[in-house]
Amino acid sequence: MQVERYRPILYLQYFLLLIDIVMNSFIEMLRFENVILLVLFVIQDVCIIFAVIVVFLLFFNTYIFQAGLVNILINKFKVGIMVTFAYFGLNVGLHVWEMTLRWDEPNKYIWETSGFIPLFVIQRTGAVLYYYFYKRTALKLGDPRFYQDSVWIRKEFDKRR
């Protein structure tokens, strides 16, 4: 893969992560109206979906994937993929719950709802793991060996047949 092609992709991935970090950090200070809050939540979730799509597009672009050795790629990045999906689930769950609690009054004190604080803490802590693994996956996919033919790939291909 060309550097010119990889550069904007990596910047896009960093940008998506940055949006997510900023949303996670400052959403509590942006409780102006319920609709604004909802839009922000939606933006954050869509960003995660975009991030996943970008990573999978990179996967599809690799020579290993095109050779049909998808399992290798999934094995390689399974932790990152799992963390991303788990985080997306937590994110959507928390957002839905928070939105239902705050819809009538965005600044309502909602922390006394039982179970909300643990979910909040888990979601925010999981976010760190998501950032770390996603960033690591994005950087590792810059390895040019994923995008070129090699003796090792041919051997693996022969094994499969």
Binding site: I21, N24, S25, F26, E28, A127, V128, Y131, Y132, K135
Partner: peptide, 18 residues
């Protein structure tokens, strides 16, 4: 302060994990 500590701690944790 809560928001600032969160973003700073996230960056620090990612960095130390890296």
């Amino acid at each position: 302060v809560q928001c600032m500590f969160y973003i700073l701690l996230v960056l620090c944790t990612i960095s130390s994990c890296d």
